[in-house]
Simulated scan of single mutants.
Amino acid sequence: MEHVSFKQMKDGTAEEFIFLRKLENEFCTRTASRLIEELIRQKTETLEGYRITRYEHAVQSATRAMRDGADDDWIVATLLHDIADGIAPRNHDRAAAEILRPFVREDVCWVIEHHALFQTFYYGEHLGWDKYAREAYKDHPWYQLTVDFCENWDQSSFDENYPSEPLETFIPIVERVFNREPYWFQNKN
């Protein structure tokens, strides 16, 4: 079979959906590569006005996480925390979290999902926003993780002179994380 015959999903056969599932599984094995390609694309595309590109920010953030002894989930999440900035600038945090969700722990995903709000602590007052908006989550168990992520790895990673690791350092880690069984399958009997 080269392609399905149906024009509406409700008309598909079991054979067609099994065929599509096989192709989808093959496509999923290349997720890490597509994410790395997106990072590389961000070498030349960036938000104007910053001293470094999105790519450099990503690599610098991940380098800081790695040098702090973070595990694979944190390193990959830090590398990719702004991966959706170019296509979803108003909700890049939630979009990045959804990309990561099957493959990183829940606490790491929550941090990525909320990091943009937590980052406003550093600049919100200059724009007339509530710099303490993150306090709405002060009783959340992952509040401090998010504060620490922003302080140590995100807001501090806009330095064009920081000696970051090359992207090649992170590629095997990204591949390891995105090629393992998604978390929701790992915990099923």
Results as ranks from 00 to 15, higher is better:
residue 36 I to E: 06
residue 70 A to Y: 03
residue 27 F to K: 12
residue 150 C to Q: 13
residue 39 L to C: 10
residue 180 R to T: 10
residue 51 R to G: 02
residue 134 R to I: 05
residue 157 S to N: 04
residue 12 G to T: 03
residue 106 E to W: 09
residue 165 E to G: 07
residue 140 H to K: 06
residue 112 I to Q: 03
residue 135 E to I: 04
residue 42 Q to K: 06
residue 78 T to D: 08
residue 100 L to C: 10
residue 156 S to M: 09
residue 131 K to T: 00
residue 78 T to N: 07
residue 29 T to D: 10
residue 186 Q to N: 08
residue 107 D to Y: 05
residue 174 V to P: 12
residue 150 C to L: 02
residue 58 A to G: 12
residue 134 R to Y: 15
residue 72 D to N: 15
residue 136 A to Y: 09
residue 33 S to Q: 14
residue 149 F to S: 10
residue 119 Q to G: 01
residue 117 L to A: 11
residue 130 D to T: 02
residue 99 I to C: 04
residue 60 Q to K: 01
residue 3 H to S: 13
residue 100 L to V: 07
residue 108 V to E: 00
residue 87 I to Q: 11
residue 13 T to F: 00
residue 130 D to C: 08
residue 145 L to W: 07
residue 88 A to Y: 14
residue 78 T to H: 07
residue 144 Q to P: 04
residue 173 I to G: 06
residue 82 D to M: 05
residue 115 H to K: 07
residue 58 A to Y: 06
residue 154 D to A: 14
residue 176 R to G: 00
residue 75 I to A: 02
residue 151 E to V: 13
residue 9 M to V: 04
residue 105 R to C: 08
residue 164 S to V: 02
residue 91 N to V: 11
residue 102 P to G: 01
residue 10 K to L: 03
residue 164 S to K: 10
residue 49 G to P: 01
residue 163 P to A: 05
residue 86 G to I: 11
residue 130 D to G: 01
residue 92 H to F: 10
residue 186 Q to W: 03
residue 173 I to T: 14
residue 176 R to S: 15
residue 175 E to I: 11
residue 174 V to E: 06
residue 168 E to K: 11
residue 176 R to K: 15
residue 47 L to S: 10
residue 42 Q to S: 12
residue 16 E to N: 03
residue 74 W to E: 11
residue 86 G to V: 01
residue 20 L to F: 06
residue 188 K to G: 04
residue 37 E to N: 14
residue 114 H to Q: 14
residue 98 E to N: 13
residue 58 A to H: 04
residue 132 Y to C: 07
residue 88 A to F: 11
residue 7 K to E: 15
residue 57 H to T: 09
residue 2 E to P: 03
residue 150 C to M: 13
residue 87 I to G: 04
residue 3 H to R: 11
residue 28 C to I: 08
residue 30 R to S: 13
residue 95 A to I: 14
residue 41 R to W: 07
residue 117 L to D: 14
residue 70 A to G: 08
residue 5 S to C: 07
residue 124 G to M: 02
residue 137 Y to Q: 00
residue 46 T to L: 01
residue 130 D to Y: 08
residue 68 D to K: 06
residue 128 G to L: 07
residue 126 H to A: 09
residue 103 F to I: 00
residue 71 D to Q: 08
residue 93 D to H: 13
